[in-house]
Design a protein around this nucleic acid. Structure first.
Lengths: 350, 350
DNA sequence: ATTAAGACCTTAATCGATTAAGATCGGCCG
DNA sequence: CGGCCGATCTTAATCGATTAAGGTCTTAAT
C-alpha cells in the first residue's frame, strides 16, 4: 500500500490538495460537509495526518530543543545534578509545548551525524570538555545555543555557577572549623578514564572548565588559609559513582597523616567517601568531615554540601532558548549556598 | 541577511544545486577542486549545512525515537524506575545513532499538538492511564509503537512485568513470615490527584492498568492466605514522593490494630513509610516490615523489594523500535525477583 | 436589477534538500 | 580514427506539506 498523503485524499475526492490541508489546519475555511467527507476519506484511507517533517519544513520550526550532554545518555540519567537540570529544562520545554531531543554524543571514534541531522530549533549544551568536536558541530548549525557549566563560548549565553567561589566556600567551611589536613576527591576533570592521584598538571590542565575552576577554588581557599597545596592529596576518579567515591575515600584515608576533612566534587562521590569511612570504622563527623557538591543526594545522608539551583538553571536555559533571547549573549551565574549538615565538624584534636 | 541554502551557494559559483549537495553528502562524486571551492563559499556565506528537516523529508527518516510518559517531564526525571528504563532506552538509541525525543503530555485541558507534530520514526509509550487521549494520537500516527507497562494495546508490542505475580511475590513474602495484619500504600492508581483511603471501587477501577493489576496481586495473595481483603487498609497517594509515603505510613500506622507489615508500590514510597515508622519510634523490621517495589532506591536503605529489569526493558523496547520488529506484536514480559533485605522480618508477636 | 460582501475552493509559489539518469568531454585502446 | 569509458556536472523529479491571492457563486442590501 502506497503512502497516503494530502494529495491522495484530494484526488479521491476530486478537490485540491490545499482544500484537504485546510480541513486539517483551518477547519473554519471549509464547509462542514466537505470537511467531514475529507475526514471520512482520510481515515478510510488510513491517513496518518499531515506529515510533521513536511510541516516542519514549510513552517520553518522544528518544535524541539536539542540537548547535548558530555556523557553517554545512560550516564546522564544517573547523575542527580544533571537530572535536576533536566527537570528544569523539561518544564520550560513543556510550557512552550516543545519536545526535548536528547542527543547521543559521538562516543569513541565512531563518527556520528546526530548533531548535524538533529531536527531542533535550538541547542542546549551541557558540560562538554574543552575542544570537544560536538561543540563545533553545534555551532556550525548556527542555531541559538546556550551552554551550561562548561565550556564558556564567547558570544553565546551561559548558564552556570561561580565555580571558584562555590568551591572556595566548601573549602573555607572546613578550614574555618579548624581542619588543616585536607583531602580532595574529584570526578570529571578529564575524559580519559583515568583514576588515581592527580598531579598538579592534571588538576590545572583539566579539560572540563567548570571542574578545573572548582579545583582552583579549593586550592585558593587552602592557600589563603596558609596550607601548602602541594601537600594536599588529590584523588581523581573517572566515574561519578558511589563506588568510585569509596575507592577515592580509601586512597585518601590510607594516607599518613590521614586527612581530617575530604572535599568532593559531587554528592555521589561524597557518599562513597562516607562508605569508605564506615569501612574503616571512622566516625563522621567525629574523625572525618566530608563535604559534597550540588545538594543532589545529600539530604538523607546528612551531608554538608553546596547547593546549586539546578532546576532554576534548567528553566532559565530553556527560557533563553525558547524566547529567542539566546541571540544576545547573557551570562547567568546562579547563586550557590553552603548547606551545613552533620557530615562536618571541627577536627578531633582541635 | 537572507537564509543561505544549497541554492545560494550554487548560484554564487554558477553550478547546479545538485553539485553542492554532492559536495556535502557524496564528496567522491566531485572533483577535489570544485568541492573545496564549494566548501569555501559555504562558510564564507555562513551556510549551516544541509537543512536537517529538508533532508529528513527527502530521506523519509527522522532519526529520533519519541518517548511519551504519563507524568510531566519534571516528574519523570524524578522517578528512579523511569530513569532506569530511560537509561536502557537511551543506550539502545545511542547505539543506533538516533536521538530520543521526550514529549510533554498535554497536561490539564490545554490541547497540545506535540504528538501530532513530533518528528520521529517510532514511539515508545510508557505508563499511560486507560483511555488517555495521547495514546490515540500516537496510534493515529501509524508509526511503530511499543507500550511499556500499561496500557496493553492489542496489535502492538508490549514490554512489561507480570504485575500480579510480582505483587503476589511481595505479599507472600510477608505472609510467609507470619504477618496477618497487612497494610498497603500505593501511588499511581488514578490520575485525579486523590490522596486518602482507597475504596474497593477505586482499587479495582484504577485507570493505570499495571497498578490495578499490581493491587490485584496483593489482594489475591492475601486472600489465598485466608486474609479478608476488606479488612486490609489501603492508602492511596497522588505523588510518588518520600513525603507522600510518609503520609501514607502515618495513616496506616495510626490504625488500630496497627499493621505489622506494609506493602508499597514503589521504593520511594517505602522509604517514606520508613520515615513514618521512625517518627513513631517503631523498630524496622522488629515492629514493622516494609516492602518496596522496583529496586530503584532500596539498596542503601536495606529495603526488601521486587527487582525489575528496568534497563533491560528499556533496551528491549529500543531494539524493538529500531529494528523494525515493532511491526509484529510481541509481548515481552521481563522477570522480577524478590530481593530480601533488612526491612522485613517475622512479626514481633509471632 | 446591480452590486458589494461573504463563503468556499483552487491556483501556484514555496520550504530545502536528494538522487537516478542523462549530458559532455578528454583520454585511451585497438 | 572510431568508439568506449570514466570522471564530472546538470537536469528534473520528488519528498509532503502551507498559505497568500484569486476565482466563482450565493445572498442580501440598495
Amino acid at each position: 500500500m502506497a503512502r497516503v498523503t494530502l494529495q491522495t485524499i484530494a484526488d479521491r475526492l476530486g478537490v485540491s490538495r490545499a482544500t484537504v490541508s485546510y480541513a486539517f489546519s483551518r477547519p473554519d475555511q471549509l464547509s462542514d460537509g466537505l470537511r467531514q467527507r475529507i475526514m471520512e476519506v482520510a481515515d478510510e484511507l488510513g491517513y496518518a495526518g499531515p506529515n510533521p517533517t513536511a510541516r516542519s519544513l514549510r513552517l520553518g520550526r522544528a518544535g524541539a530543543l536539542g540537548l547535548l550532554f558530555s556523557e553517554t545518555l545512560a550516564y546522564a540519567f544517573a547523575d542527580p545534578y544533571a537530572i535536576g537540570f533536566f527537570q528544569g529544562l523539561a518544564t520550560a520545554a513543556e510550557d512552550a509545548g516543545v519536545g526535548l531531543l536528547i542527543l547521543p554524543l559521538p562516543h569513541g571514534d565512531r563518527r556520528s551525524e546526530t548533531v548535524r541531522d538533529a531536527v531542533v530549533d535550538a541547542f542546549c549544551v551541557m558540560s562538554l570538555p574543552d575542544g570537544h568536536p560536538a561543540l563545533a558541530e553545534v555551532l556550525a548549525r548556527k542555531l541559538p545555543v546556550v551552554v551550561v557549566d562548561e565550556p564558556y563560548v564567547p558570544g553565546h549565553p551561559f548558564v552556570g555557577t561561580d565555580e571558584p567561589a562555590a568551591a572556595a566556600a566548601a573549602a573555607r567551611h572546613v578550614l574555618e572549623l579548624g581542619h588543616r589536613r585536607i583531602g580532595v576527591a574529584m570526578v570529571g576533570l578529564h575524559d580519559d578514564g583515568h583514576t588515581g592521584w592527580a598531579s598538579r598538571e592534571r588538576q590545572e590542565g583539566a579539560v572540563f572548565e567548570a571542574m578545573r575552576r572548582r579545583a582552583g577554588g579549593y586550592r585558593q581557599a587552602c592557600e589563603e588559609a596558609g596550607i601548602d597545596w602541594s601537600g594536599v592529596p588529590f584523588y581523581e576518579v573517572a566515574r561519578n559513582s558511589r563506588e568510585a567515591g569509596r575507592k577515592a575515600g580509601h586512597a585518601l584515608l590510607g594516607r599518613d597523616p590521614r586527612p581530617t576533612a575530604i572535599l568532593t566534587n559531587t554528592d555521589v562521590l561524597a557518599l562513597g567517601v562516607l562508605d569508605a569511612a564506615a569501612d574503616l570504622g571512622l566516625a563522621v563527623p567525629g574523625e572525618l568531615s566530608v563535604v559534597g557538591f550540588s545538594d543532589s543526594a545529600a539530604e538523607e545522608a546528612g551531608l554538608t554540601t553546596i547547593r546549586q539551583a539546578k532546576q532554576e538553571m534548567g528553566a532559565a536555559a530553556g527560557r533563553l532558548l525558547l524566547s529567542g533571547a539566546a541571540a544576545e549573549p547573557e551570562r547567568l551565574v546562579f547563586p550557590h549556598e553552603l548547606i551545613v549538615r552533620t557530615s562536618t565538624a571541627p577536627p578531633a584534636h582541635a
